[in-house]
Design a protein around this nucleic acid. Structure first.
Lengths: 211, 211
DNA sequence: GTCTATAGTATGATAGAC
DNA sequence: GTCTATCATACTATAGAC
């Protein structure tokens, strides 16, 4: 028999990833989970804590896995932007262990975590996994020595934005794509399509440094 | 003397662009505008109508201007991805006529219009300016005949996501950048940094069609 | 651990006096 | 057109019985 606490987590993940954190009420969650309204506060203390519990379930799998991929790649003498970006793929797929549709759920959660002003989530991530984020940044830098740190900073966030947008608006976009091209696009296919786009964008010449 | 209706519009634009549509209450708006709470409903009928009025004020300047830029470029025999993208710049700057910080405001509003599930906004835009959007898409296609329509569809949305994210999270990101590099980044500089990134991403080889 | 009942707060919208 | 007062509704959170 599934415990109440787990039922809440599962329902919360689903609804948060579909509608965002703020737009999802505890009533929707407890209703979807088929548990009592008060049980959220009993098990998690507050909505904020529930949000962190949901995110942490994925972060704690994804981040160490990413760290390991980066370590492995770092042993090579040289690597390309694409190589570094490719380190994301396996850890993302590993999220299937957490939940069958874990990869998609996590990316969508990430999107909302940024676009809504969930300051506590960013802080939470950086205190726990800041070194992984840092390392990722430095390896991208290493692969693109011709770019200034500032340019790289912005391009990485452009890339993040591209990915998050594709995930958050993914459902609507896939429906439009289906209507326009009569061809279905899988949620994970979107991510694969993203990689060459992002890799080219990051590695592009910097007009500033050409002056 | 500034009319109540205008005071509401000005305050709403500011707050919507800072916190999003759903996160901004009518009470915040009327308080910022220093008018009575009931006046929003008197002048606009509903919050939804106010949102559309705010967006439309910018769209009605931006979209025709973009259309004209595209027309001008279309007279050339050939044009690059960058050429098409560059058509956005002048119309964006023209939004200064609407408001001194119009360009930034509009981009941020656009970001929230997408990331929040403002279905009515997307519908509103497409019925009024769908042909401009369509034209833009086709000219990007023209500049990249080596790419499938599907790939282009996704890359354009990746680009949109990159831009919207940079704007919506712009304030926070600029603060981080300032702390990291001790160098300020202007809001409009962000947009200029975006263009080469996006141009390279869009025009990149498509792994699928290389098979 | 689970429930009901409810406190306390915020929202969008409106009726009606002026 | 502008105001006050208020309705109806939604939310998070908690106290207290079982």
């Amino acid at each position: 028999m599934v415990k109440t606490k787990d039922k809440i987590i599962l329902a919360a993940e689903k609804l948060f990833s579909e509608h965002g954190f703020e737009q999802t009420s505890l009533r929707q969650i407890t209703s979807e989970a088929d548990v009592n309204l008060a049980s959220v506060n009993y098990h998690f203390g507050s909505k904020k804590s529930l949000i962190q519990a949901v995110m942490s379930r994925y972060q704690s799998v994804f981040m160490p896995a990413l760290d390991e991929q980066l370590s492995r790649l770092a042993e090579h003498e040289t690597y390309s932007t694409t190589d570094v970006l490719a380190c994301i793929t396996a850890p993302l797929i590993a999220l299937r262990q957490v939940r069958i549709d874990g990869p998609v759920i996590y990316l969508r959660l990430l999107g909302f975590a940024y676009s809504e002003i969930q300051g506590h989530l960013r802080k939470f991530t950086m205190t726990h996994f800041g070194h992984v984020v840092q390392r990722f940044f430095e390896m991208i830098q290493q692969a693109n020595p011709h770019l200034s740190r500032k340019t790289l900073f912005w391009r990485l966030h452009f890339s993040l934005g591209a990915m998050l947008f594709a995930q958050v608006s993914g459902q609507a976009l896939r429906e439009i794509a289906l209507a326009d091209f009569g061809e279905e696009t899988q949620a994970e296919e979107t991510f694969l399509k993203l990689l060459p786009f992002v890799a080219a964008g990051i590695a592009a010449d910097d007009p500033e440094s050409q002056i």
